[in-house]
Simulated scan of single mutants.
Amino acid sequence: MHPRSAFERLKSIDWLDDTGAFDHTGSRMALMREYLRRSAQWAEAIGATESWPFFDLGEAIEPGIHVVGDLAAAMENFLYQNVTRGSIRNTCWGVVHWAALPPDKLAEFPGLDDPYEPLLLFYERGGPFTVEGPFINVGEGMVLHKNVEDHLSPHPVTDLDEISLDYLDADENR
């Protein structure tokens, strides 16, 4: 994904209306757990476990990576108007910086999945989250985040396709 495309996805999210969070509790819980799993794998691979879980992986992999010009200004303006929580701001910058990483840099870490796709889908299905102690509030549900080691499973939590995610929401609402 190109940094501009990543920014456009972030910009299309309704950050102020959390009604989607309640309609998509099941999928958002699974997507958050999948983000925690993937980001834990990356944090361990690059030696950044102390920054986990809501950090800018692009910056951690390629210190000093930046988006420039009008995209940087648009991103700052967007965050100023829509995103107040530091953990979410970090991950939004992480999404854009991740998209700016050169493919050869990512090739140094074979077998690791894009850490931000589950989080982008999470945001798209209902906006932000809040952290309350060891829990991540995702609307009508909570996800426990202990430490990196607890999230290092090699097995995905969920498929990221819309049918699978909708099934999780329907199952949650039964």
Rank of each mutant, 00 (worst) to 15 (best):
M1N: 07
H2S: 14
R4K: 15
S5E: 15
K11F: 12
W15P: 00
L16H: 09
D18G: 05
F22R: 12
H24E: 04
M29D: 03
A30V: 09
R33F: 08
R37I: 05
R38D: 01
R38F: 02
A43T: 05
E44H: 10
E44L: 08
G47Q: 10
W52C: 02
P53D: 08
F54R: 04
F55D: 04
D56C: 12
D56L: 12
G58R: 04
I61N: 04
G64V: 11
A74W: 07
E76S: 08
N77S: 14
T84D: 02
R85V: 00
N90S: 07
T91N: 00
W93Y: 09
V96Y: 04
P102A: 14
P103M: 08
D104T: 11
A107V: 11
F109S: 08
P110N: 13
G111C: 04
D114A: 10
D114S: 12
E117C: 11
F122W: 10
Y123G: 01
V131P: 00
V131Y: 00
G133V: 02
P134R: 07
I136P: 00
V138S: 01
G139W: 00
E140M: 11
M142Q: 09
K146M: 12
H151T: 06
H155S: 12
E162S: 14
I163P: 05
L168H: 03
D169K: 03
